[in-house]
Amino acid sequence: MAVRGKAMVPLPTLVRAMRRRTSNHMPSNQPLPSLRRAFSLYDQINLIDNVPEDQIRFKQVTDTGFGVKGVHYEGSLLCVGNLLMSWHPKKLSEVTPESLSIFQTVRPVPEILLLGCGKYIQPVNPELRAFIRSTGMKLEAVDSRNAASTYNILNEEGRIVAAALLPYGVES
């Protein structure tokens, strides 16, 4: 008990000293900076501005397509690194190993394939999962808005990532 009492005695003195020190260096109406914010990874990564010209960045996800660099693309898209192409599947049941066969030849192999399932997350066919695993990629099946957002972040980090996106309006 005596040790605990001694440890608590200097605390009020420390608080008073900190208040005197901050009042000399900072205006009293300005809040103290948050330590959590000061050490955030996202303070080091600019997710909105200064995106390289050749980098794909999804700005809009609609029921019928996607907005990229001021251009609206109708229908499904397949993205690998900073390449963007039209993709023929219109619903998740049309996504097959054949529709993703490009990943048998793409080098370097993306570390992850973000599968945008449309409006809702849906179960992925085990045959399709096995095919994606055989290419060396991991699969993340999410709704298309989250897939596009995750693609932006991972691509900006410089990671090798791919996305197969169905329009947000797709429900089955």
Results as ranks from 00 to 15, higher is better:
residue 55 Q to A: 07
residue 38 A to V: 02
residue 46 N to A: 15
residue 121 I to C: 13
residue 108 P to G: 09
residue 156 E to H: 14
residue 48 I to G: 13
residue 78 L to D: 01
residue 158 G to D: 09
residue 162 A to W: 00
residue 51 V to L: 06
residue 144 S to I: 02
residue 88 H to T: 14
residue 14 L to N: 04
residue 115 L to A: 01
residue 127 E to T: 11
residue 101 S to G: 11
residue 34 S to W: 00
residue 57 R to V: 15
residue 96 T to R: 07
residue 48 I to Q: 14
residue 31 P to H: 04
residue 33 P to L: 01
residue 65 G to V: 07
residue 60 Q to G: 08
residue 151 Y to R: 00
residue 58 F to A: 03
residue 50 N to P: 07
residue 3 V to Q: 05
residue 130 A to P: 01
residue 108 P to D: 06
residue 18 M to K: 14
residue 76 S to N: 03
residue 47 L to M: 09
residue 167 P to S: 04
residue 141 A to K: 01
residue 171 E to G: 01
residue 77 L to N: 04
residue 22 T to L: 08
residue 7 A to W: 13
residue 27 P to Y: 00
residue 87 W to C: 02
residue 117 C to P: 06
residue 17 A to K: 14
residue 50 N to L: 12
residue 68 V to R: 08
residue 154 L to C: 10
residue 57 R to C: 14
residue 83 L to S: 13
residue 53 E to C: 13
residue 10 P to D: 03
residue 31 P to R: 04
residue 14 L to R: 07
residue 73 Y to G: 11
residue 47 L to S: 04
residue 90 K to F: 11
residue 81 G to D: 08
residue 160 I to T: 14
residue 39 F to Q: 06
residue 143 D to C: 05
residue 147 A to Q: 10
residue 115 L to Q: 04
residue 22 T to M: 06
residue 39 F to T: 02
residue 13 T to F: 13
residue 63 D to H: 12
residue 45 I to V: 14
residue 142 V to N: 10
residue 2 A to N: 09
residue 29 N to Y: 01
residue 118 G to M: 06
residue 3 V to I: 07
residue 24 N to K: 12
residue 137 M to W: 00
residue 43 D to W: 02
residue 169 G to K: 13
residue 50 N to I: 13
residue 122 Q to H: 03
residue 137 M to Q: 02
residue 57 R to L: 15
residue 131 F to G: 09
residue 158 G to P: 05
residue 154 L to V: 03
residue 81 G to N: 08
residue 49 D to V: 14
residue 109 V to D: 05
residue 101 S to I: 07
residue 136 G to Q: 05
residue 108 P to S: 04
residue 82 N to S: 12
residue 25 H to M: 12
residue 118 G to E: 10
residue 105 T to Q: 09
residue 21 R to K: 12
residue 112 I to D: 12
residue 131 F to E: 06
residue 13 T to I: 15
residue 168 Y to R: 03
